[in-house]
Design a binder for these strands. Structure first.
Lengths: 220, 220
DNA sequence: TAGATTGTTAATCGATTAACAATC
DNA sequence: TAGATTGTTAATCGATTAACAATC
């Protein structure tokens, strides 16, 4: 039982990939899957799959593999997405609006319940059927009222740090950041950043646009 | 001179962060920066900054630091973004449209020049001032005509693999994938995936929603 | 039973950090 | 010169892979 080992960060990321794939297997009415099959589907070695899962307990059955429905439950519990969490969004420009209409969040355990912007012309605007854009002043009240822990940050780079600080002050503890800046936050606040330019630059480097090209092309 | 060492993947990712920060310093009219200052700004140690840059050559000046303008040029050349690259987008749903209107690409060396969708009702629709949505059949011709190497993939998960194969067959060599699937591609094709649900799940895990919470909150 | 597959240990590989002589 | 800061080496730390006894 490995519960007290230190868990590698990359292992947690892969857990999400396994979960997504397991749900796909289940949708195809499969009952069990081996570490090899699961690994092949997400481009990871079988040993890696077993090791990643073993950090959290013994979920498999020698000779059989893993029972899909059971493993989905386990992984959800590990990730904390077995219960729905409320999410808010700050900054409703093009990207913010697109993310708000993304239907995939809810299915994975996240409910978008509020949206904020500091542009007076956007306040009161309808973002989705049930969500109207609120002023930043309402942040504290809304976070408390809906017990919101997660926030998606979609403001321009120049206002990102300030907006993040307002979110944190209001009680947000996890920020998904789309602004191309490194947010400076205190311990106890988790930040995950999605930087589109960074991703394109990685591709560019891999294609050997750089004169140092490793050439090895693989998923990042 | 370290040019023949193997370059760690994470180092390349950090190169993009350095570049973004260097541009910010230059915009603020600074001339030089030390590895410590640059590192502090992007939450990386000074030793790491020096090591990352040293993989590609000797860009710094002992006692002085790095000359910002010079380093920007070097890093752009390393990443292959010193010249503009043409980019296309496949799938113009909400997310695709939002990405198309994102102004940050061009500034970083990427020009969006074409968009595709397999939905007949979207063909001919205007995506931006200069771009109209084309049918997938035009992919080969357009990629060749504009010498496009990069593609942004924004179709639903179910059609992502097939769309990726069409892109690759047409000559695309780097794919920025927004569909929540692991694309299976041949060597020689680079894939970088942005999975929004994965990011939220990482945050959820870090907040200890999981019963195994590492607690340590830091940027991922 | 024979075949399949796990969980775990040990071996390997890769990345980060610390320290410092060389340099401006 | 004295102070600052690099590039690089060696030491540490962390993650992945290989191998296999235990199990169904």
């Amino acid at each position: 039982m490995a519960k007290f080992e230190r868990i590698p960060t990359p292992a947690v990321r892969r857990l999400s990939l396994y979960l997504r794939q397991l749900e796909r297997f289940r949708a195809a009415d499969r009952r069990t899957v081996s570490s090899r099959e699961l690994g092949d589907a997400v481009a990871v070695s079988d040993a890696q799959v077993r090791k990643d899962l073993a950090y959290f307990g013994q979920f498999g059955h020698p000779g059989i593999g893993y029972r899909i429905a059971e493993l989905i439950d386990r992984v959800r519990r590990i990730l904390g997405t077995d219960k729905q969490s409320n999410v808010l969004i700050v900054g409703v420009g093009n990207l913010g609006r697109a993310l708000a209409s993304y239907r995939g969040f809810a299915k994975q355990g996240f409910d978008l319940v509020a949206a904020f912007d500091d542009d007076a012309r956007k306040i009161g605007t309808r973002l989705t059927e049930s969500i109207r854009v609120k002023p930043m002043d309402d942040l504290v009240k809304t976070v408390a009222g809906h017990q919101i822990r997660f926030g998606i940050l979609c403001v321009p780079a120049t206002s990102a740090q300030a907006a993040a600080e307002q979110m944190i002050a209001a009680g947000i503890r996890g920020i998904l950041n789309f602004a191309p800046v490194t947010l400076q936050v205190d311990a106890g606040v988790a930040v995950s950043s999605v930087d589109l330019a960074v991703h394109l630059e990685q591709l560019s480097f891999q294609l050997g646009g750089g004169r140092y090209g490793a050439g090895k092309a693989a998923d990042v």
